[in-house]
Simulated scan of single mutants.
Amino acid sequence: MNIKAFIQLMRPANLVTAVADVWAGAAIAGAIPPAFDWRSFLTLSAATVGLYGGGVVFNDVFDAQLDAVERPERPIPSGQVSIEAAIFQGTVLHLLGIGAASLCSLESGIIAAAIAILTLSYDRFAKHDAILGPLNMGLCRGLNLLLGVSLIPELLSDYYAVGFLPIIFIAAITMISRGEVHGGHSRTMLFAGILYAVVEIAQLTFGYMQGHLLEALPLVLIHAFMVFKPLLTAYQNPIGPNIGKAVKAGVLSLIIMNAAWCMAFGAWPLGLATLLLLPFSLQLAKWFAVT
């Protein structure tokens, strides 16, 4: 059994960004260490690993025939992992994610189940649609942020609107990722840049409203530099490799964006802890593909 191939199916560097979503959501709910439920916090962190991991495994299951042509080095088309084994892996990860979230609260379990359903709908149907694909993937991330907010379930009604911002950001990444193999269009990069800017301005606005603008500002600026530099290169020359770098930067920058959310809501301990996830994710990105 090729353990590394099974790990590769889960996109480990991407999993870290999913954990960062939950931490940011917890910060938005007002969970500032040490005064909050550590057990539920860690359980929700584990739940998102199962949900995201299961989603990307099923992505490769449904794309097996396409990957055999475009990405033959991936675990399934290369024969390192069978379709049956991948289906089992994805199913177990999803069930573990829903189960872990349900241990925290009914609301957390419902959100987790919705994420699992949305990941499957994206993998099987929506990803090939120019509008539904980005929207579906964005919904997964938006709900993932709210999964963190569900650490304090009664606050979900107060902060559900924040979940729309990851939808915008992830929709932009998903939109430009369509050109990773065959290249894309400059206008797509331009539109993605506008969506990125909308999210960053919103973060600064929330920081101002919460009285923590100065804490959030440096991280928002770092995030902007991280995503706009490769995006500009892809805009100037929208070939596959340049777009791939822009997509990778967008995915990994989620950690910075989530740390900015923590700072915007005054949860600097969680913000610093989230930042520490970045070098870990970057190291994983050297060992495993980021898509």
Score class of each variant (00 low, 15 high):
Ile3Gln: 11
Ala5Leu: 10
Pro12Ser: 01
Pro12Glu: 01
Asn14His: 11
Val19Met: 15
Asp21Leu: 10
Ile28Gly: 12
Ile32Asp: 15
Asp37Phe: 03
Trp38Ser: 06
Trp38Asn: 08
Val49Gly: 08
Gly55His: 00
Gly55Asp: 05
Asp60Met: 01
Asp63Val: 08
Gln65Ala: 11
Gln65Val: 09
Leu66Val: 14
Leu66Ala: 04
Val69Phe: 02
Glu73Leu: 02
Arg74Trp: 09
Pro75Phe: 02
Gln80Ile: 04
Leu95Glu: 09
Leu96Trp: 07
Ser102Asp: 11
Cys104Lys: 05
Ile110Met: 02
Ile111Thr: 09
Ala113Ile: 01
Ala113Gln: 02
Ser121Glu: 11
Tyr122Thr: 01
Arg124Thr: 05
Ala126Thr: 14
Asp129Met: 09
Gly142Ile: 08
Leu143Ile: 10
Leu156Trp: 04
Gly163Thr: 03
Pro166Phe: 03
Ile167Val: 15
Met175Thr: 02
Ser177Cys: 01
Arg178Ser: 01
Gly179Cys: 03
Val181Lys: 11
Ser186Cys: 09
Met189Asn: 00
Ile194Lys: 07
Ile201Met: 15
Gln210Val: 06
Gln210Ala: 15
His212Pro: 04
His212Ser: 10
Leu217Cys: 04
Leu217His: 02
Leu219Pro: 13
Ile222His: 04
Ala224Val: 05
Phe225Met: 12
Leu231Lys: 00
Tyr235Asp: 01
Asn237Ile: 05
Ile239Thr: 14
Asn242His: 14
Ile243Asn: 02
Lys245Phe: 00
Val247His: 04
Lys248Arg: 14
Gly250Ser: 01
Val251Lys: 00
Leu252Asp: 02
Leu254Met: 13
Phe265Val: 13
Trp268Thr: 15
Leu275Gln: 07
Leu276His: 08
Ala289Val: 10
Val290Pro: 11
Val290Trp: 10
Thr291Leu: 02
